[in-house]
Design a protein around this nucleic acid. Structure first.
Length: 240
DNA sequence: AATTTTAGCAACCGCACGTAT
DNA sequence: CATACGTGCGGTTGCTAAAAT
């Protein structure tokens, strides 16, 4: 038995959202919350599929979205997390507050993948072989990078390492966990990370947490991690 | 200036997973 | 336990703007 379609397709708008539709969706969610996405369009008076509304909200209309170019550090983080996690865009996004899985996926496919391929052919100061080496601590998850780079990424360090790292990643629970360590004390800061300083500290935390960037820029005094989280990291390195 | 090609991005589609019944 | 349903994720498509010819 096939599943019923997620929504009645007839007479629903598709394609780009109009400002009017955006306005209506934002107004509704601000007032009532999204609740059940499937029934939201009808309640909000939108001729859209619930999935379409959800996507539009998550990727574009959410107030805590950071729009604009990715910083070098964000790009480095994506490259290295992709090396560990593969095409787990949602997981990667959870380590980059304000960025969406869709956006990260697009950046990867349009910029970073090409850069990695180019860097592999002609290593530069920015993408040295050592830099690339750190991305090769990866797993079988990776499937979408160019075959050349991807095969290199998956070959060297094996399943056990990445598996344990992923366990730690799951344990750390990304941004929310960071917030709970006391780096971010209030709900507003947690939900609307826009300050450079906040982002920088978060990325430093991430670096320390994952051993990214080969220790560059990591300052343990500044990055106060919960003791049990440091324990997880120490345990990881003792296992490797 | 007109046309073609390429790059970037928003959105759609189908599947998988978790949960309720 | 089986089924239906809601949600989230990842792959892919298609539109638009910019760059190249």
């Amino acid at each position: 038995m096939g599943r019923a379609p997620c929504c009645e397709k007839a007479n629903l708008n598709k394609g780009s959202w109009t400002p009017k539709e955006d306005e209506r969706l934002v107004a509704y969610i601000n007032k009532y919350g999204h609740g059940n996405w499937r029934s939201l369009p009808k309640r909000a008076g939108l001729l859209r599929c619930g999935k379409s509304c959800r996507l539009r909200w998550i990727n574009y209309l959410r107030p805590d979205i950071i729009r604009g170019n990715f910083t070098q550090q964000e790009e480095d983080t994506i490259i290295k997390l992709h090396g560990l996690l593969g095409n787990k865009w949602a997981k990667i996004a959870s380590y980059l507050p304000g960025r969406t899985d869709n956006e990260i996926k697009n950046v990867w496919n349009t910029h970073l993948k090409k850069r990695l391929v180019a860097a592999q052919k002609t290593p530069t100061a920015a993408e040295t072989p050592r830099d690339l080496e750190s991305t090769r601590t990866t797993s079988s998850h990776a499937t979408s990078v160019s075959d050349d780079v991807e095969s290199k990424c998956s070959a060297d360090h094996g399943e056990v390492l990445s598996g344990k790292m992923i366990e730690i990643l799951d344990g750390v629970d990304s941004w929310d966990s960071f917030a709970r360590t006391g780096q971010v004390v209030d709900e507003i800061s947690t939900k609307a990370i826009v300050g450079d300083e906040e982002s920088r500290r978060w990325l430093a935390y991430l670096e320390a947490e994952l051993g990214l960037f080969d220790g560059v820029g990591v300052d343990e005094d500044e990055v106060e991690m919960a003791e049990d989280q440091w324990d997880a990291v120490r345990m990881y390195f003792s296992m490797v």
